[in-house]
Amino acid sequence: MADFSDLLVFTKLDELIKFARKNSLWPMPMGISCCAIEMMAFAGPRFDVSRFGSEAFRFSPRQSDLMIVAGTVTYKMSHVVRKIYDQMPDPKWVIAMGACTSSGGMYRSYSVVQGIDQFIPVDVYVAGCPPRPDNLLKGLMEIQKKIARGEKPGQKEKIYIEETFQV
């Protein structure tokens, strides 16, 4: 009989699924305005989100499980964002990227939704106008931690990523 002890790892099925999910979050790039440029930098070679397994940006909601809402959401657009969120398979996570998405930001006006948490559950809020790509990476890592802890999307406490500056 061969000895398999070097080749086999035993774990719980739950842990294995969590491990797989957290290391291959496929983002749905909901790039609606200038934050989307930083989201592209986050995917590009310098900040390189593929280090965290999320480089596969899917332009179909059916194939993604993390929505990065990057930009100003107007009332007219809110229905589209909600529809795309509804089309994503469970479990699905939402990052509200930037000031506009989280709170309306500088657009304190009749046409802009003052925070997307009014119509979809948000897991991580990333501050900044726009946030630096490394802050968005931190937001992604917080989602990974949530998955590792076994939390359900949009349920437990929200996470707020503060702004950092590169010197």
Binding site: Y75, K76, Y110, Q118, F119, P121
Partner: peptide, 28 residues
């Protein structure tokens, strides 16, 4: 503005933050 909207937002009497309920949000 969406088609069903009843106001004209750049008129001076229109409040900056809009009229509550005039622009519906999706259900949460």
């Amino acid at each position: 503005m969406p088609e069903g909207f009843e106001y004209h937002p750049l008129r001076k009497e229109f409040p900056l933050m809009g009229i509550p309920g005039s622009l519906p949000l999706p259900r949460k």
